[in-house]
């Protein structure tokens, strides 16, 4: 193979004028992490609400929850990204639409909203599965003690369901993190986008992608280690 390796490339200044190629990748990494964390807040909150809706003894609540999940699960993320970025500002009232388009860091806010709503549908499915996996008697016991529906969820069902679904929620968190790369299509300068531009400027394709790969693997390892610690911290003595 006639590819010329140059691992020193990371220390060379990037064509952006400030910092090296390494700085460029690290800036991408920080956007990736910021986007992943912010969108996860939405995904976790909204997903929990939608998941709970699907377990309530109300046909309307079930229908709303199901409609949400089906809608966001059956449209590719890339298409959703374009809908939020290109379509939403056009169908909003003109003044608001224009304001949205002129927002600084618009790709970031769009990506956060898009990923938040998208991942919420996946979190919702996990929350629903977690609640439904609890013995039916738990809900009855809460109700029999005089808890309202909200109290039964708050004090009995959710604390148990979250413990059960911690491993799949960790996977969803990682999926959400990886999905931030789709936002490069709307101009978010996250890690993959930065690796790609480093390749375009320097022609050192494999160094750029290797570095990005290592960074992604590292974040994965950190998240998994964190999840393991969390699992241990919330484990119930004598539990399964």
């Amino acid at each position: 193979m006639n590819y010329t390796w140059n691992w020193g490339i990371f220390l060379e200044p990037s064509p952006e004028g400030v910092g090296t190629y390494a700085d460029m990748l690290l800036s991408g990494l920080s956007w990736t992490i910021a986007t992943a964390l912010c969108s996860w807040v939405i995904a976790f909150g909204l997903g929990s609400v939608i998941g709970v809706l699907r377990t309530l003894p109300s046909k309307t609540a079930n229908a709303v929850g199901t409609a949400y999940v089906e809608l966001f699960r059956n449209v590719p993320l890339l298409v959703q990204m374009f809908l939020w970025y290109f379509v939403l500002p056009e169908v909003l009232p003109t003044e608001i639409g224009t304001a949205v388009k002129q927002l600084p860091d618009a790709p970031f806010y769009t990506a956060v909203l898009c990923l938040g709503f998208f991942t919420a549908s996946r979190v919702a499915e996990q929350v629903r599965a977690g609640i439904q996996s609890l013995p039916r008697g738990q809900r009855l016991a809460g109700t029999a003690l005089g808890f309202t529906v909200a109290q039964t969820y708050r004090y009995v069902l959710l604390p148990n369901a979250y413990r059960i679904i911690l491993p799949p929620l960790t996977s969803e968190f990682l999926n959400n993190l990886k999905n931030t790369s789709v936002a490069l299509t709307i101009g978010l300068l996250e890690l993959t986008a930065r690796a790609r531009s480093m390749q375009e400027f320097s022609f050192q394709v494999f160094e750029a992608f290797t570095a990005a790969t290592i960074l992604y693997v590292l974040i994965n390892l950190v998240v998994i280690a964190g999840a393991t610690l969390l699992e241990r911290a919330v484990a119930v003595p004598g539990g399964r």
């Binding site: 990886k178 390749q199 394709v205 992604y216």
Partner: peptide, 18 residues
């Protein structure tokens, strides 16, 4: 499973010719 699909797409786009 720990890499974004977009990155893998780029990887192979450049790697496959080699």
């Amino acid at each position: 499973r720990s890499l974004p699909l977009v990155l893998v797409i780029f990887w192979f786009y450049f790697l496959v010719p080699y």
